[in-house]
Each structure stands twice: as C-alpha cells, then as structure tokens.
Design a binder for these strands. Structure first.
Length: 281
DNA sequence: CTTACGGCCTGGGTGC
DNA sequence: TGCACCCAGGCCGTAA
C-alpha cells in the first residue's frame, strides 16, 4: 500500500531516469481508472519528461511544454496496488499492466495495478493549488506548532485525523499505526484530548517513522515495489501494523487489532492506553 | 460546520 | 474442484 515513504521512493527513482526521456509510443490496456484517457492518448506520444514531484501520495510527472506552450503534468495516484516502473522493453510486462509508455532509450514506463484503485490524469496548464483537491500539509514539512494546532482543534479520533489527507497528506494505515505506537497514543483518542507533550511526541514519532521508512525504501506488504521493481525493507521494522497477537517489542503485551475510523488499527493495549470513551462502549 | 458510518470500486487469498 | 466471503484505501452520500 503506497503511502508517503513508498511514493517518495518511487518519485526519487523516477527522478533518476525520466527527465530527458521522450515518449515514443503509448499502449493502453484497461482505462477505467484514467480520467479522460483520450487526452493521454493524444498528449503523451512525443512528450518529453522534465521532472518528478510528490505531493502527499500523488506523483506528478512534469512534461516539457516546448516553445511557449502550456505546461503539462501526468498525475498518478497508486491507490492500493499501483506500481510505476521503468523496465527494459524486452522484459515481459507483468499481468494487470494497463499503461505502457515506450521511451527513447529502449525502456518502458509501465503502470501496473491489480485492483485499479489508482488514478491517472493529465493536467494541462499551470498547477493550481486546487488541482489535486484540498490537501493538508506535508507531515515532514510542518512545524511542531502547526502539527499540534491541526490536531488539537479537532474532536475526531486521532487515527481518523492522521489518515485525513486534508489535515496531513501522505499518511496511510501503516504509518499512522506505527507513529501512534511509537508515541504511545491510543488510536481512538480524540484530537482535542491530546496534551501538548503528547502532540510533541506524536509529531516527533511521525517524523522519525517516515524518515526511517524512506531510508529503507518503504514497506512491501503485498504489491508495493519501487520504480526499479525492487521491494522495500521497512516491513521488517513494523512494531504494530499487521502484528496482531504478537508481543509488543516494548512491553511484551499482545498487539491487538480493532476498527477505528473504519480501518484496522493495530496497537499495544498496555503502551497505548484506551480513553474512557473507548472503554465504556 | 463537524463527525461517523456504510457502501462502492476490484480481485487475490482464505476457508468451507 | 468450486464458490462465497472478506479485505484493502479513497471517496462520496447520508444522517445526526
């Protein structure tokens, strides 16, 4: 499941190989996850890649506008099972590969997505702030003060707030659970109930977890691979996510799984004390 | 306005 | 062998 560290890893990998490469030919499989695929079919052939950006879990592949033309960006959201890889054209493409852009160096930029929960769209013209919908702040770029304000002003549960892309952008189920475990905060706590010290601790935990995960090139649970097709290594470092019934590495209590904000949430019942509201229901 | 929740999209894995 | 069912993350509609 590509979250911020996985998407960042893909972005860095693509940044190494895409700029300067021209698209020679484009092939489409299923296109129901693409907004206006005819625009991609028209604009991508002959396009020249000139940059790669990440915004939250979104990838933006910048295309060279050429002489005075409007800028173009290929927006890609990997959803749950999306993969964006650059491979030599003579390597057979895996099943569920739905977009193939042949490049001028004999390689291919491929989009593979088993579930097709991903999204792809060509943005023509300058990137307006509203273009990707309302997005929150980058969790690695926010100050402790801003981080605390965005949580403390809300009565929703902390798990829901961390997952909410309009509050912070890029966090998903894995890294919210890992961050909450590290900060010893129960996922059902309300944002407004967190003390200043807890917010400070959570901010530091989020930063540390994301930085470590980026360093290890993300978590490969089922489908995630980077732009070279390689798995990440952070899945071996998980302390809470996916560890139901296993011993907490801090206190040896059994990790539990409950549903919070409609999502599986893994936590240590001893290190992360439940709020009263969660105990009484 | 905020929050909670259910349903939908798809297909691999699991259990009967 | 087959098949119903669960689940994943984001998004949207609805209700309180």
């Amino acid at each position: 499941m590509p979250e911020l560290p996985e998407v960042e890893t893909v972005a860095r990998g693509l940044r190494e190989v895409l700029p300067g490469r021209r698209v020679v030919e484009v092939w489409f499989g299923k296109t129901d996850f693409i907004e206006q695929p005819e625009i991609l079919a028209e604009q991508l052939p002959r396009a020249l890649f000139c940059g790669v950006e990440r915004r939250g879990k979104n990838l933006l592949l910048a295309l060279d506008p050429g002489g005075g033309a409007e800028s173009r960006h290929l927006l890609v959201h990997l959803g749950m099972t999306g993969q964006l890889t650059v491979r030599h054209a003579d390597e057979i493409a895996p099943p569920h590969t739905h977009v193939v852009m042949r490049l001028d160096d004999g390689r291919e930029l491929r989009y593979t997505d088993i579930r097709r929960f991903g999204k792809m769209r060509l943005i023509i013209g300058p990137l307006a702030e509203s273009e990707l919908g309302e997005l929150g702040v980058e969790p690695l770029e926010t100050s402790p003060t801003e981080f605390a304000e965005r949580i403390h002003s809300r009565r929703a549960r902390i798990k829901a707030l961390l997952l909410d892309q309009t509050v912070f952008r890029g966090l998903g189920n894995i890294y919210t659970d890992e961050s909450l475990w590290r900060a010893r905060i129960h996922p059902a706590r309300l944002g407004s109930s967190l003390r200043a010290k807890e917010l400070q601790c959570l901010h530091a935990a989020v930063r540390r977890i994301l930085q470590d995960a980026i360093r290890l090139r993300g978590s490969s649970i089922s489908d995630y691979v980077d732009s070279a097709g390689e798995m990440g290594e952070y899945q071996g470092k998980h302390r809470a996510y996916g560890r139901e019934g296993q011993k907490c590495s801090r206190c040896a209590a059994r990790i539990r799984r409950i549903i919070v904000a409609g999502r599986s949430s893994y936590f240590c019942p001893r290190c992360q004390r439940a709020p009263r509201s969660a105990l009484t229901r």
